[in-house]
């Protein structure tokens, strides 16, 4: 399927999703749906670096919170700025953060890269905690309007629509990358960087591109958060659950294709939302843990690994 056609299909799915949510006619659907969509963007962004190039990023929270806190700053300085613009700026800041992280840490491989990103997340949290302009450790309050000027729709519904649009863009771009020259370049980095260089692939440039793109999407996913929660403090913005969920979702869905993170995010995100409503919100991390263990054993290539055609002869290493 060609990219424009695929993009159109994504838009149809998005409109249908909105239609169903509207049909259920319960404001909570938008409230819960927003989180699921946010995770689609987060895990799709994570997968561009983690799945395509093989660099496992434990610092999702840093990029996510960079976007969220950028919105807090704009809310205090330029409160009239439209939220989509704030999202673009938050994304740009997180992309720059990604570029910087990439430049400093991409000489590290495997576990060491993971530890470095985790450390960066901790450093960022400390910085924000000590920055009183954005509320420091006390946190920041963001007053959310009840409705938008836009057809007067409910603000939560508006946030849902924004995140839905962002998901479409993120998934569309991830798939376009996957089937392009760039996607092949990313895959060579995952497989063997020395051989990639010998085959003419500019590995450093591609890695920086991957960290920037990945960070940018995470930042954009985080930017509307202050308006969603209305109160943001470092402990919740930098919550470990963002990092854990964002790694678990692509792993459960499958990291080799754009569809994996989407499946993982929808499955895990929905389960967590259901558990929050019916049992307890503390259960959500337990669900992640149990599912992750089950899937590592039952489907090491993720859910899409069950359906993907095997390359080569039967019994070959998939």
């Amino acid at each position: 399927m060609r990219n424009p056609v695929f993009f159109l299909c994504l838009c149809v799915v998005a409109v249908a999703t909105y239609g169903v949510a509207k049909f259920i006619d319960n404001a909570y659907v938008f409230f819960a749906g927003y989180v699921v969509l946010q995770y689609i963007v987060l895990s799709t962004g994570w997968n561009i670096l983690g799945g395509y190039t093989g660099y496992v990023n434990f610092g999702t929270a840093a990029f996510f919170a960079a976007g969220a806190y950028s919105t807090v700053v704009w809310h205090k300085t330029v409160p009239d700025m439209p939220l989509p613009v704030m999202m673009l700026i938050g994304g740009a800041i997180a992309a720059l953060l990604g570029l910087g992280t990439g430049y400093l840490t991409l000489r590290l491989r495997g576990t060491f890269f993971g530890i470095a990103t985790l450390a960066m997340s901790v450093v960022m949290q400390t910085l924000i905690t000590n920055w009183s302009f954005v509320g420091g450790s006390r946190g920041a309050y963001v007053v959310r309007p009840d409705a938008t000027d836009w057809f007067g729709i409910d603000y939560i519904e508006y946030l849902f629509l924004l995140m839905l649009g962002l998901s479409v863009i993120a998934v569309g771009i991830a798939r376009a990358i996957e089937q392009s020259r760039l996607g092949y370049g990313f895959a060579t980095i995952r497989d063997d960087e020395l051989a990639a260089e010998a085959s003419g692939v500019p590995t450093l440039r591609l890695k920086l591109l991957a960290t920037a793109l990945s960070g940018g999407f995470m930042g954009m996913a985080g930017a509307p958060l202050p308006y969603y929660v209305t109160y943001l403090d470092p402990a919740s913005g930098f919550s470990l659950s963002y990092a854990v969920n964002t790694i678990a979702m692509p792993l459960i869905g499958g990291t080799s294709s754009w569809l994996g993170p989407v499946i993982g995010a929808v499955l895990l995100g929905t389960l967590q939302q259901l558990a929050t409503v019916t049992i307890s919100s503390a259960l959500s991390l337990l669900i992640v843990g149990v599912l992750l263990v089950v899937f590592v054993v039952a489907a090491p290539k993720g859910i899409i690994g069950w359906f993907a055609p095997r390359k080569g002869k039967p019994g070959a290493q998939p």
């Binding site: 895959a187 060579t188 063997d192 003419g200 080799s256």
Partner: peptide, 27 residues
């Protein structure tokens, strides 16, 4: 200037055809 490695270093997750595709795309 091209080289082959002493211990073969193929791109393990790609098919043979895809392995050759890389230098075609990037060189």
């Amino acid at each position: 200037m091209a080289r082959s490695f002493q211990l073969p270093r193929p791109f393990g997750t790609m098919t043979l055809a895809e392995n050759l595709r890389i230098p075609l795309l990037y060189v």
